[in-house]
Amino acid sequence: MKLTNEELLEMQRRMLRIRLFDERASKMVKRGQIPGTVHTSVGQEAQVVGACMAVRADDYMTGNHRSHGHPIGKGSALGPLMAELLGKATGICQGKGGSLHLADFAVGSLGESGIVGSSIPIAAGAALSSKLLAQDRVALAFFGDGAANQGGLYEAMNLAGIWRLPVVFLCENNQYALSTPAATVTSGRIADRAHGFDIPGVRVDDGQDVLAVHDAVREAADRARRGEGPSLVEVMTYRFHEHSEGLRLSTDYRDAAERDAWLARDPITLFRERLLADGVAAAEALDALEAEVADEVEAAARFALESPLPEPEVAFADLYTDPSAAEVAA
């Protein structure tokens, strides 16, 4: 898949957005500016952006608790996302979703989910809409290695298989379900499970390579768009932070050598080197890109910090489309 220089630089831009957004959010959790916690995608940016940029802007997407990277990768504006993390009135969900439940319908993001595996059937339904309404859209369902052991995934893969729904099931295998090594709770290879449904299942062994992820997902998305049905793409990656910010575990559940090996392969650094080596951009241009994204994230943080908190009555709105029903409920 030949990508233009603009597309390649846009990949780097989106990976940087995720990195800097999440690093900023991490600081804000520590400072008590973000209530609750967040789960960062630091270290997994190539896996997220490679997938998001392999589908169209109007394609559907569902996600999980590691939730900021997906909408950012799909093209969301950063300010309303950051404001949502802070529970502000200007948040993308008006302060009612928070980090775990981001959604930005304007970019096809139908919602992240705090319940592991729970959003996967939603993606199958969006793909059914696309098919019956002849919308030519694909649904990209992100889930982790933990969700690969939820039954709903296999119900969704079976349904998408028999109905030839345009779904790309994307397993972000960061190798740990919180502290539990995936290998100890997962029988066989996740990608191979697709074969039982007679749909393609591929594994991207180097999920730190944004182009490798992109190519695999692009093939799956193209296939789905041609009406040939769903695919499963498993991407091997690693999270650089703890499961969630502020979480301190007494056991060191990840092997030091393993961690060092993965940390040495920062997807953003790797792609920067590649862009330089391929002559896509000069170092100065990439530095400028980084500075630009840093400013953008800083502006988003400022917007979020300066935004007002929601009025209390907002808690009582939007349960139903029909306000008279909500009045009865309240």
Partner: peptide, 26 residues
């Protein structure tokens, strides 16, 4: 068959897919 569809015995995805379809125009 597009509009009258037998499903597998998979209540979780029946309900979830209906929600996803409803969120996107059906």
């Amino acid at each position: 068959r597009d509009r009258i569809r037998n499903t597998p015995i998979s209540e979780e995805v029946m309900v979830g897919a209906a929600a996803g379809a409803a969120m996107t125009g059906l």
